Amino acid sequence: MAKNPFSESGKPVSKLTAIAGTVVGALVIAAFALQQLGVIDLETDDSATAPQGSSGTASSDVGQAREQMEELRIEAEEDPPGYDRALFPHWDSGVEDNCTTRQVVLLRDGENVETDDDCQPVSGSWYSEFDGETFTEAQDLDIDHMVALKEGWRSGAHAWSTEQRQKFANDLDSSQLWAVSASSNRSKGDSDPADWLPPLESAHCDYVVSWIEVKHVWDLTVDPDEEAALREVLEGC
C-alpha cells in the first residue's frame, strides 16, 4: 500500500518530518530492546518527585524509620525528679586525636574547616539544617542533641548508669548530634516533636527520621502525643 503523503488534517507531510518520525520510532524500539537486555536503565529518578518537605530524605531511611516506629514503646511520659545535665557528662575529650566530641561534630558537619593546634575550628562554614542558615563562625553554632538530654531522662535514661548517659550524650554513631544555629537549638530546648519541629519545613522528614532512630537505638519510650506527631510527619515523607 502506498504511503499517505498527507497528515490527518489534509496538510502535506514533509520528507524531513517523515524521516524524523521513522528515526524516533527506531530509537524507541532500540531503547526498549536494550532495557530488556539490561544494558540501560530507563527508570525515572524518584528524587525528582519526592514529596515536598522531605528534604530529599532517602526512601530507604523513611522505610526504616517506619519499621522502627512500630518497635518503639509507647508510654505516658514520666518526669522523675533529680535531673541535672551533669548526670550526662558530655563533650568527651580525645575522641579523635585531641578533639572533643563537639569539635568532631563541627569538623564533620562543616565545609572547608580548618582548626588550630587544639582542634578548635578557626575557619569554615556550617549550614544549619533546622533553619537553613549558613554560618562562618563556630561560636554561632550549638551541637544539638537530637533527643535532648532531659527528654532522654524523661524517656528512660533516669534509670541508666552515668556511663550509659555519657555514651548517649556523646553518641557519634547514630544521628544524635547535629551542628545547628544556636538560636534554633535554644528555641527547641528539651521539646519533643509534638511541641517543636525545625522552622525549616523541608527539614521535618530528616528530623523525625533521626528522632525515631535515636529513640530506637537507645530503647527510649515515646509518649502518645509524640507518637502522633512523628506519624503525621512520616505520612508526608
Rank of each mutant, 00 (worst) to 15 (best):
18 A>R: 12
18 A>P: 03
19 I>R: 00
19 I>G: 00
19 I>H: 04
19 I>L: 07
21 G>F: 03
22 T>P: 00
22 T>R: 03
22 T>L: 04
23 V>W: 05
25 G>P: 03
25 G>Y: 14
27 L>N: 05
27 L>E: 13
27 L>P: 02
28 V>N: 06
28 V>Y: 12
29 I>R: 10
29 I>A: 08
29 I>H: 10
30 A>L: 13
31 A>T: 05
31 A>V: 02
32 F>M: 06
32 F>R: 02
33 A>Q: 11
34 L>Q: 04
34 L>H: 09
34 L>M: 13
35 Q>T: 03
36 Q>F: 04
37 L>C: 03
37 L>N: 07
37 L>M: 06
38 G>D: 14
38 G>N: 10
38 G>C: 07
39 V>H: 09
40 I>E: 09
40 I>F: 06
41 D>R: 06
42 L>Y: 09
42 L>N: 09
43 E>D: 07
44 T>K: 15
44 T>I: 04
47 S>N: 14
49 T>V: 04
49 T>L: 10
51 P>V: 01
51 P>R: 05
52 Q>N: 05
52 Q>Y: 12
52 Q>I: 00
53 G>K: 03
54 S>A: 08
55 S>K: 03
55 S>T: 00
55 S>A: 12
57 T>F: 03
57 T>R: 07
58 A>V: 00
58 A>G: 00
59 S>A: 08
59 S>R: 15
59 S>T: 11
61 D>Y: 05
61 D>I: 00
62 V>Y: 12
62 V>N: 07
62 V>D: 12
63 G>M: 10
63 G>S: 14
63 G>C: 04
64 Q>R: 10
65 A>P: 09
65 A>L: 09
66 R>K: 14
66 R>C: 00
66 R>N: 11
67 E>K: 09
67 E>I: 02
68 Q>E: 15
69 M>R: 11
69 M>P: 01
70 E>Y: 01
